[in-house]
Nucleic acid binder design. Sequence first.
DNA 1: TTAAAATATGAATAAGCATTCATATTTTGC
DNA 2: GCAAAATATGAATGCTTATTCATATTTTAA
Lengths: 222, 222
Amino acid sequence: MAASKVRHAGTNFMKENKNISRREREKRRQRRDMLAAAIQLFSEKGYHNASMQEIAAKAEFAVGTLYKFFKNKEDLYKALVTEQADRFHETLTATLAEEVGEIEQLRNYVRDKGTVFMDNVAFIRLYFAETRGASFNIKAGLDSELRERHHQLLQILAAVFSKGMNKGMFRRIAEPYHLAVALDSLCNAFLSNWLEGRDSYPESPDIILNIFFQGLLEPTAP
Amino acid sequence: MAASKVRHAGTNFMKENKNISRREREKRRQRRDMLAAAIQLFSEKGYHNASMQEIAAKAEFAVGTLYKFFKNKEDLYKALVTEQADRFHETLTATLAEEVGEIEQLRNYVRDKGTVFMDNVAFIRLYFAETRGASFNIKAGLDSELRERHHQLLQILAAVFSKGMNKGMFRRIAEPYHLAVALDSLCNAFLSNWLEGRDSYPESPDIILNIFFQGLLEPTAP
DNA sequence: TTAAAATATGAATAAGCATTCATATTTTGC
DNA sequence: GCAAAATATGAATGCTTATTCATATTTTAA
C-alpha cells in the first residue's frame, strides 16, 4: 500500500513530538482491556480464584500475551489496584483543592467520595480489602503503599478541619487528623451499607455531616 | 488397671449428666490447638497461602488428623471465623445489655469494643476482611452470615440511641440505626489506625464519643 | 512483493496443595 | 497382658494453575 510509508513517517513524527503512534495507542487499548477483564474477575472471585487463563479468555487474548504486558500475576494485580487507587486519590485531592470555604469543602468531599465509589463498584471490594482488610500477603508492600496514600489524603482533609478551627468556624472537639479519620470512616460506613443494599448512600452530604456538625447531646443547661 | 472400669463407668455417668469425659476434654483441646494454629497462619498469610500441611505442622498433628476434625479447609476456616465472631458479638451484646443509662452504655460499647479487639489482634485482620473486605468467595454464605450478625448488633446499639432520644437526652440528628453505623465505624477507624501503628486507641472512650456529643460547628447566633 | 523483525499464540511444563487411605499406634474392655 | 476398636499418621494421588517457549501470524520497510 502506498500509504504505508507515509504512515510510518507520521509515526516517527508523532513519537518525536511526544504524541502517541498508532501502535502505541493500540497497546494501551489492549492493556486497558486486560485490566478491565482482570478487575471484573478479581473483584468477583478474588485474587486466587481468578486464573490467568480466565483473565486472558475474558479479555480475548492468549495467556502469553498477558505476560507480554505484565511480568506475572502479582504484577498485573498491583498495576490494577495502583492505577485505580490513583484515579481515586487524584479526584478527591482535586476536590479538596478547591477553595470554597471549609464547610463546602467537607460537603464536596462527602459527595465526591460517594460518586467515585458508586461509579466503580467492581473496584470497591478490592479497595476495601486493600485499605482495611487483611492484606493477605499477596503483593508485599502494596498495601503499605496504599495506606500511605490514604494517609496523605487524610492529612489534606485534616488541614481543612484545622483551617476551619483557626477561623473560629469549627470547635476543637478533637484533633484535626482524628476528625479526618472520623469523617472518612463515616463515608465508608455509609457506602458499605449501601453496598450491602441495606440503605442508600445519602443524596445529600448533609446527612453525614450533620452527625459532625450538630452534636448528639441535648444541651443540658443554658 | 483396676481404675479403668471405674473410669469408664464414670465416663458414661458424666456423659449422661452433660459433663465432659476425659477423652472429650482431650478432643476439645486438640481442636483448640488446631484452630489456634490456623488463626495464626490465616491472619499472617491469608486463606490461600496457608496450607493444610502447614497448619497441621504448626499444631503438631498430621494432616490426616486435621481432617478428622474438619471436613475440609473451608470448614476449618468457617469454624474459625464463626467461633471468634461469636465470642465477639456475645461480649458486646452483654455490654449493651447492662442497664446503666444510655450515655454510659455507649461509653462501655466503645471501651469494650476496643478491649476485645486489642485482645485478639491476630483475628482482627480476618474480621475486617470478612466484615468489610472483598468477601472473595471462599466460604459462600459465610460473610452474609457475619454481616447479618453485625447488623443485629447494630440494631441493639440503635435501640440505645432510640431510647436516649425518647428520653429527650439525645437530639435526633440522624436515624438511630445510622448513628449506630456511625459510632461503630468510628471505633473501627480508630482501631484500624491503631493497628497501623499510626496512633493509639483512645484510653478514654470520650475522645470518640465527643465527636458525637459535642458537634463540630461553632454556634453562630444565640 | 518479500524477507526480516516484531508480536501473538496456546500447548506443554512444573510446582503447589487439598484430600484420601492403607498402615501404624494407642486405647479400651476383659 | 491381650486382641478388638478407635484413632493418628503422612506418603501418594490427582487436580489446578502460573509460567514458559517453540511455533504461527502480523507488521515493517525496502
